[in-house]
Design a protein around this nucleic acid. Structure first.
Lengths: 131, 131
DNA sequence: GTAAACCCTGGAGTTCGCTCCAAGTCAAGA
DNA sequence: TCTTGACTTGGAGCGAACTCCAGGGTTTAC
């Protein structure tokens, strides 16, 4: 697959893909003789993983560390797992926080309704009077 | 309360508070004769609200719109509510996305365990042999 | 009344994560 | 073979949200 196809498939731009590769978010991409990237299945899976993780706000730096450990081979399994755990925990805390804020927004919206609905009823009664 | 106290209370810096006020995230802060900010209870509540919303990643622009409608009075209740609903929905979608990624990370970590635990057991057996 | 600590403003600087650009190379169709 | 369009690189630029700074004013404690 070409860079444009992969970009399209995962909803990002070729520039972002090049950037990800440049900074080390994607292990490596095979090239044609002329130097043009050709993404295989493995590479696509990496892209998909990275796009997902970035979508959840996991920092580029953490992902770079993860990828560089991956490149270093099986001796780094434990360390890689620790990065994942660290990020999972961070994300779990974030989700909790967001859920609290979500609940708060819901309440605030309810409050607005309790102000707005009586106001609307008043208008409707007015309407009844007028017609 | 002084700016430093408020900053401390909500875990931000005085600079951030001044920035929030400057761009319109906080309706107004009363000043002393000398021009020094003095946060009352109302103002603290605004700060708390804004810090919470910002903590959930709600955009500064949306909050500015909200605050400026608030300043404009009761005629803007419906519009304010709409902003809240819009942001609530955005946040809800985000939470869903994050939960999916969280589940994925959990699975990935489990996979690492299924590789690492057998390796550990091997090491432990070796330990038994040696002592 | 003065020193130290805090506050003020406007504007420049920083960080993160892309995003865009110039100048050139490569590949596929007419 | 030429043209057209996609690809390459290194590096500059950008938007969001702060963060910091210089040069000053204010408060408070002694």
């Amino acid at each position: 697959m070409t860079i444009a196809q992969v970009a399209d498939k995962y909803g990002i731009t070729p520039d972002t893909l090049r950037y990800y590769e440049r900074v080390g978010l994607i292990p490596s991409v095979t090239r044609s003789a002329g130097g043009i990237r050709n993404y295989g299945e493995e590479e696509c899976n990496w892209v998909e993983f990275i796009v997902c993780m970035r979508g959840a706000g996991i920092e580029v730096d953490a992902l770079i560390r993860y990828v560089s450990l991956f490149k270093a081979g099986n001796g780094t399994l434990k360390e890689r797992k620790n990065i994942l755990i660290e990020q999972r925990d961070k994300l779990a805390r974030r989700v909790e926080e967001l859920e609290k804020t979500l609940a708060r927004l819901d309440k605030k919206i309810e409050n607005y309704e309790s102000v707005l609905i009586p106001a609307q009823e008043k208008l409707m009664k007015k309407g009844e009077k007028n017609g």
